[in-house]
Write a protein that binds this DNA or RNA. Structure first.
Lengths: 210, 210, 210, 210
DNA sequence: CATGAATGAGCATTCATTCAT
DNA sequence: TATGAATGAATGCTCATTCAT
């Protein structure tokens, strides 16, 4: 899943980035796969991208901003992609299953992104005012709205806090993906999704048995 | 749980470290709580400890060695402490429960240590030849021996691999502690221990029903 | 014989070096005249050259590389200069005399260069893989070929090893120049050349009497 | 030729040095054989000698002073040794031959000493006020007096400057020893001495033929 | 808009030397 | 006298960032 593709198909902001900017971002991502943020030098980015070092500052202001930009594209793309897939689903539980599957899938397949988002970026100064955090926020809000729709549709028990359910979903996914992240032990996305939904839905679904 | 306390109460090597060395170690630990290893400068350690920068090299040889020393004291102390608590226990399953409780307790209470050991140090060059790794190795061996004793005492099924059981214990603990580590969400040590042992012992205990 | 002059007159690579690079090289050479390589600090080079310390690393990679660069320019220039002077000579013995004269002249007039090349650089790690060593190698090969031409032209006895003659020339020159180098006692280049060639040519020239 | 032996047998100042001082000096010399002065650290000297690092300063004041002390013992011993051998010689030319032989012998066999004295120490600040320089001075004076005695005895031409002859001797020896020093190519001391004396004596001896 | 030269603060580490006991 | 802890000035080198054209 390269940035180019994303930018062309989904991001409306695609013309914000010059060709040089795109090259920079891609070089940066490829480096991020090999080493952590702090070990990557701007000289290296310039060399790999073939773009002049100074242009990083013209385009992104700073190395940190470059990181936030990349993170923003990733997250934004992810959320837009989910929004697309949710369209033709009616059931709230089906929608939640989509979200869970996509989220797990992203984390398992895009380790770099997951590692930065889960382990690194939260300690960075300015993260909670970044655009990325805004997208994440939007994503959790969408999830919460789906849960609330589920309540209205009588798919989900009304006595549970939507926010708590949402947090369980987000936290649960993160923990399910940790082994892959830390120990590089992957499990099939379908399996993880099924197991997680089994517990989640049995526990929260409003039905005859409960 | 500061190094001083440890050194005074449990470590026989306490006189290996001069007052300056102790100050250095403590300053280093306090810095480790605020930022990661690579972000800590020797100048900073010197400033916080009040000890001359050069002494880090007299005492520890290098910044990295300082880290390994701290890690060694922590782990060594931890293992000795466990050994002590195991003494008056006869049952192998009781011993395993002690190990699990102490391990979870350490990780939940000593975040710095856990973070370094679980997330950082494994990538450091030289870790697998460090004294710390030696202590960890010893610890896992002790655990394995307890499992093997359990087999002889008819407490544990003989058809299971001791090594696999040991790995499940170590890996399970790590994952149980991840939420605390990553999201600072603690759960009572007793609860975590009970839940883990419930699964582990029901699964591995030799009994009439199986 | 400053680097600037060389670069302007003889080296085709003159545009390889930026103005800052030239300043650095010249400052380095002037320092080399006062103290040995290891005693010269990069800070000092920066101060004397008026160029930022970091640029040494941009230009030359390391302090040692700077040395090798200077050495390379010197040697390369020297060899090119000799090649030029050899052109209009037909006799092999005349050519050898040119080489000997130029070599002695360089060493007597460019003490820094001679000192480094004869006393210091041979102990430096990496010298035998440096470009400078390559140039020196080329220079000795040219000398050997002249000797071999001399054999074909019946100027030089065919029963002598060209390689041995070449070594005698190189070694002899070095020793003739030692007094200037070590005790700053110069003798006229013409005198030294005549004395050396007298011995060398009487010994190796093929004639009626032998 | 170890310092101990020297000190015990010849140096009247032997009680100036404590056992620790002797150990220090010997360690220093052994290190000097492996690397140059500036590359030797006081810590290293302490380690090799088994003597506390601080004591170097108690004994010698500084690292440089230690060097000068060693040099002093070497030179002093050398001169005393020559004085001894000169006693039973009557002829001035025989005496000069002794001096030349011993001097060449020392340089060829004690490369460390020669290298320091010929290539290094002369650049050191304070050398020309050191005790070593005093001994060297004394040595050259003795040589000059022998030459002057030779004139009185009609062994040496009276029309030559004693000082110039002495300089030729000293300079000649140095250059004869250079190949050994720089290129580790030794020639027998007897050969070198004979060749040198042949030239020197044939040139300066007053005889019938001249 | 693009470039590459320039900047300066910083970093881990070394080492001769001095201090305190 | 002997010891080992302490000192502080340096040293080569790195890197994000800015300047000038």
């Amino acid at each position: 899943m390269s940035i180019d593709k994303k930018k062309k198909s989904k991001l409306p902001q695609k013309d914000e980035l010059t060709p040089g900017g795109i090259k920079t971002v891609n070089a940066f991502i490829s480096l991020l796969k090999k080493k952590e943020f702090d070990k990557i030098t701007t000289a290296e980015i310039a060399k790999v991208s073939g773009v002049n070092e100074s242009l990083i500052y013209k385009y992104f202001g700073s190395k940190r901003e470059l990181l936030h930009t990349v993170l923003f594209y990733y997250t934004n793309d992810f959320v837009n992609n989910i929004l697309l897939k949710l369209k033709d689903k009616k059931s709230s539980l089906d929608k939640l299953r989509i979200i869970i599957w996509e989220h797990i899938n992203l984390f398992q397949n895009d380790l770099v992104f997951a590692k930065i988002l889960l382990l690194e970026v939260r300690n960075y100064p300015g993260y909670y005012h970044s655009k990325t955090y805004g997208v994440i926020k939007k994503y959790t809000m969408i999830t919460k709205e789906i849960i609330e729709d589920g309540k209205k549709n009588n798919e989900i028990r009304k006595d549970l806090s939507s926010w708590v359910i949402m947090q369980i979903i987000m936290g649960g996914i993160e923990h399910l993906c940790m082994p892959a992240l830390l120990f590089k032990k992957y499990r099939p996305v379908d399996d993880l999704t099924n197991e997680f939904c089994e517990i989640l839905f049995k526990g929260i679904r409003k039905g005859r048995s409960s």
